[in-house]
Design a protein around this nucleic acid. Sequence first.
DNA 1: ATCAGCATGTAAGGCGTTACATGATTCA
DNA 2: TGAATCATGTAACGCCTTACATGCTGAT
Lengths: 182, 182
Amino acid sequence: MARERKIDMVILGLLNHEDLTGYDIKKRIDGAIGFFWKGSFGNIYPALKDMESGGMITKSDTSVGGREKTSYHITQSGRKALKDWLKEEQVSNELKYETILKLFFGGAESRDTSIHNIEVFEEQIQKDLKLLKTYSEILKKASGEEDHIYYLLSVSFGIETYEAYLKWCAKAKKKLKQRGGK
Amino acid sequence: MARERKIDMVILGLLNHEDLTGYDIKKRIDGAIGFFWKGSFGNIYPALKDMESGGMITKSDTSVGGREKTSYHITQSGRKALKDWLKEEQVSNELKYETILKLFFGGAESRDTSIHNIEVFEEQIQKDLKLLKTYSEILKKASGEEDHIYYLLSVSFGIETYEAYLKWCAKAKKKLKQRGGK
DNA sequence: ATCAGCATGTAAGGCGTTACATGATTCA
DNA sequence: TGAATCATGTAACGCCTTACATGCTGAT
């Protein structure tokens, strides 16, 4: 059943660009990547360990100002694994939208409840959209590297879907406010 | 840390509308709900068992044409749990878009690889969008029940985001085809 | 002096997927 | 007769989240 753990690919993808510590990897994942993939320390460190045993990456301990650090570097076979994954056709795009799930079953409660839930969602999206737009601006200015086009496209995926969400939110609220509540 | 298993709420939401067997629940989840939440037998049956012990639902065995069936019915406390969940503000909307993850790291391979991956995604979305539009048509015709507005809004969320995806796909492919591949 | 951030990990527990196991019925 | 669908479950395994544990450094 092969390897299913996609965090490996996130790590390889990041290390393909630069050497990083586990802590740095976490920070990268919490950035723009966080909009379409998550990771935690309890996830990242074991993955790094396994991949080092597997020869995908190598580690080098350095001490910066007396502080211990372990940087990881991608190997040839790691790079191959990354490329093989990129070339694989099958992907799993799974989304779990609890907001929409609640809306789907919204009939069990008042319309105001659903309207409120949409508003909570809307606020979160607005906040996230602002962040995404900031990333987009930074990327547009810092352009030059070939990789940047990929980062920019990923970010614009987020921006465009979030804008669609917001449009939907407005429409949905309006519909629910029509003809009085339940 | 309370209950995290959202499949319980999916089941309660469905049973709030009508009595169902585990098998029927699976079919419902594979329908319109499947676009924002998934479920499997190995998921549903244990949840039904637990929720029956917990007094959220009651079961009644019937045999239809010699075949054994176990139908579940929601109880008062099950209905209360459903309503409480609907009124809770915090939600977890998590998406794992492997397609976008691959695109983000697309620089490790040729532009054609990324273009191809986008095309695979595009085809899947087109297929799903068609299905969603079918659901939408059915709901519009069968309208009447209060619940229908919620189903319709959920489905239109899917339709509108999928349409945004398709627009993005076209744009992304165009960008990647500019100024030659890597 | 204290707090935020840097830095690395482990452990428990929960949840979900997949595969397995079984058997009946209906339709071609 | 055979395949698809109905119908119910269990077991193994994998993955991830959360919480815990520890300690250093730099800035205020």
